[in-house]
């Protein structure tokens, strides 16, 4: 395996991004899960106010966390300048749209004729946000951040949102749990775990010119991946079977954070240093 070289050794500056994407994944999941509820016939089009509050709070906190990663946070709005070209601009726009829609949905009076429209907007924006979180880092020289793995935040977020809506009855009183097929949770759990494993290539399976983005974290690869699968997949499944929805949600939340830590911390990328080491291996 190639040496870490220039790609590594700069400290883990992605900490605020872990928080940003984790919170946005959970918030987007609430919207995506509501759409799933409509699809399976367990929910109506109007977004419930408590869920809209939660979604707005999560996305608002996510946006604040993202500012922590910027060297010049007061210039943050400039990130919307290249909506047509930059995937990062699109991600910021999608997250901003959800925050706006969520606030409006939460503020609408009960029984408002606009509830359905606003709810629809929030759901669509949530889906766009979840997709953009996966797509933003789809860079050609990054080995771990592309392929089907770009849909993983969508799967994980929907799972989190679904368990939140089912496990906390006050969030979505209009949801009819008796109409919810149990298989939905199982499918989401399997999809999320599978996409996560696709995203974490084995060291032996990586190209010779791959260099670790954070070599210092790569030493803990097994522990991070194991903890992510345990807290984000296995334990929630067991807790849901036992009927402990609240605990399952807590475990899933920790799993989302660990997932994002694994995303940034276990990245593998092509680098000139790696390529040079690959050449040297044949000399």
């Amino acid at each position: 395996m190639a040496r870490g070289g220039r790609a590594g050794g700069k400290g883990f500056h992605e900490g605020p991004l872990v928080l940003f994407t984790a919170l946005a994944t959970m918030g987007g999941g609430v919207g995506a899960a509501w759409l799933l509820g409509i699809v399976v016939g367990a929910a109506g089009p109007a977004f419930p106010r408590p869920a809209a509050f939660l979604l707005s709070a999560l996305f608002g906190a996510a946006l604040l966390a993202s500012l922590g990663h910027l060297g010049r946070p007061f210039r943050g709005p400039l990130a919307l300048r290249r909506l047509g070209r930059s995937p990062l601009s699109r991600e910021v726009a999608a997250v901003g749209a959800v925050v706006g829609g969520g606030v409006v949905a939460a503020a609408l009076p009960m029984g408002s004729p606009w509830a359905g429209w606003v709810g629809g907007f929030v759901v669509v924006a949530s889906l766009a946000a979840l997709l953009s979180i996966g797509l933003v880092y789809r860079l050609p020289h990054q080995f771990a951040w592309r392929g089907a793995a770009v849909f993983q935040p969508l799967a994980q977020g929907t799972l989190w949102g679904w368990v939140a809506l089912l496990g906390v009855p006050r969030l979505a009183p209009a949801l009819a749990p008796d109409l919810v097929p149990a298989a939905v949770v199982g499918i989401l759990l399997v999809a999320d775990a599978t996409l996560f494993l696709l995203r974490i290539p084995g060291r032996r399976g990586a190209p010779a010119s791959a260099a670790a983005t954070h070599p210092e974290l790569l030493r803990f690869r097994r522990s991070i991946v194991g903890a992510r699968l345990a807290l984000g997949s296995a334990l929630p499944a067991a807790l849901l079977l036992l009927g402990a929805g609240g605990w399952a949600l807590l475990s899933l939340s920790l799993g989302v954070v660990l997932d994002r830590l694994a995303f940034y911390g276990l990245g593998l990328r092509w680098s000139t240093e790696g390529e040079v080491a690959r050449v040297e291996a044949f000399l």
Binding site: G5, K10, H69, L70, G71, R72, P73, L78, A79
Partner: peptide, 24 residues
């Protein structure tokens, strides 16, 4: 015009952009 998001650093395969932590 730079906000210091470091996305160019991630996008460049050749390790060219460098972050100035003081200037942000």
């Amino acid at each position: 015009r730079c906000i210091g998001c470091r996305f160019c650093e991630m996008a460049c395969p050749f390790g060219a952009p460098a972050y100035d932590a003081v200037a942000g």
